[in-house]
């Protein structure tokens, strides 16, 4: 009985002895990293990896900058690919977005760097194209579209943009036109009727500059523009004078594609070569140092661009009501 009376005394040590010991462990991540692609000689293109008789690889790009600037930016990538693949890679600059899709469909370029919207267009025209990889830009796989206003602007939401002046980037721009256009539609603002005026600034920086300068009341730009500019005040833009009114969609970065005639074995080697190039290594940083925003490539899937496809359908449907030309047919 006396022993029994001692049992309650166990309470205190028992409760105090609950101090968990020092521990260590892992928390499983939801997105496991993909296995690294092969390197070295496995990437050398053999004759059977290319269409019969072809000895060069033509890399088509859109003219988002002057041909000279573009060449300076992208030639190191072409050179690097030449070294890795063992085949001459020629840089081929298209005259515009539409031209690149056309050249690609016509087999005049073998590999093309498409903007998201261009990729959707190209897939429409060349359904059996090969999606090689998705570009990483500034270390991110996707970006968004910002609809910016000046900090002192009274607008609180997209609906407040009715009757205001709006700056787009380009009718073929995903972040600078398609997604913000769709976002306005969803918010109940008709970009065709409700805006007092619209301006196609041509580039993201130009649209931003128009807003800062007060030429427009709102501007739609890519989020990467803002990220880049925040850490890079070279352009002299006062980013403290603008604020984000709304974000529009989540946009995957550019798609790198190969034309259907390239054999699958070649497609795989080109894809691996691209995935081996990123800014994590000193060599990668050297190759990509001049390429604006490109920091690497990752494996890509077509459904990544479904959001772009859906926005395009909605926007095109709306534009059709006003007899506007097809988005993909627009010219700068």
């Amino acid at each position: 009985m006396r022993r029994l009376a001692l049992l309650p005394l166990l309470l205190v040590p028992l409760l105090l002895a609950c101090e968990p010991p020092l521990d260590a462990g892992s928390i499983a991540m939801h997105q496991p990293a993909p296995p690294p692609p092969p390197t070295g000689a496995a990437l050398l293109l053999q004759p059977e990896d290319l269409p019969p008789g072809q000895t060069v690889l033509r890399l088509g790009v859109t003219p988002y900058s002057s041909p000279a600037a573009l060449t300076a930016e992208l030639q190191p990538i072409a050179n690097w690919l030449t070294g890795v693949l063992g085949v001459q890679v020629q840089l081929k600059i298209a005259s515009n977005y539409e031209d690149l899709v056309a050249q690609f469909a016509a087999g005049q370029v073998d590999v093309a760097l498409f903007s998201p919207l261009s990729y959707v267009m190209a897939r429409r025209r060349v359904p059996d194209l090969h999606l090689l990889a998705q570009t990483l830009s500034y270390g991110a796989a996707s970006y968004t579209s910002y609809i910016l206003v000046r900090v002192d602007d009274p607008a609180q939401g997209l609906r407040d943009l009715k009757g205001r002046r709006m700056a787009w980037v380009d009718p073929f721009s995903t972040a600078g036109y398609l997604f913000p256009y769709d976002a306005l539609l969803v918010a109940g603002v008709d970009p065709e009727r409700d805006l007092r005026s619209t301006l196609f600034a041509g580039t993201h920086e130009a649209a931003l500059a128009a807003l800062v300068a007060g030429q427009v009341d709102a501007a739609a730009v890519s989020s990467s523009t803002l990220v880049l500019k925040r850490g890079d005040p070279v352009h002299g833009l006062d980013l403290g004078s603008v604020r984000i009114l709304a974000r529009a969609g989540r946009i995957p970065y550019d798609a790198t594609c190969a034309r259907p005639a390239i054999p699958v074995s070649g497609v795989r080697k080109i894809s691996w070569a691209l995935q081996n190039l990123d800014t994590r290594s000193q060599q990668g940083r050297a190759v990509l140092a001049t390429a604006e925003g490109i920091t690497g490539w990752i494996p890509a899937a077509d459904d990544t661009y479904d959001g772009v496809r859906a926005a395009l359908v909605r926007v095109q449907k709306h534009r059709d009501q006003f007899g506007r030309p097809e988005v993909g047919r627009a010219t700068r």
Binding site: L4, L7, L10, L11, L14, C18, E19
Partner: peptide, 23 residues
């Protein structure tokens, strides 16, 4: 005494486990 002991012991065990899992 037995009731108190049993209750205390049970509470001690349950409480200990509860505190442990709470921790």
């Amino acid at each position: 005494l037995m009731a108190a002991a049993v209750v205390l012991l049970t509470m001690a065990l349950a409480g200990g486990l509860l505190i442990r899992s709470m921790g």
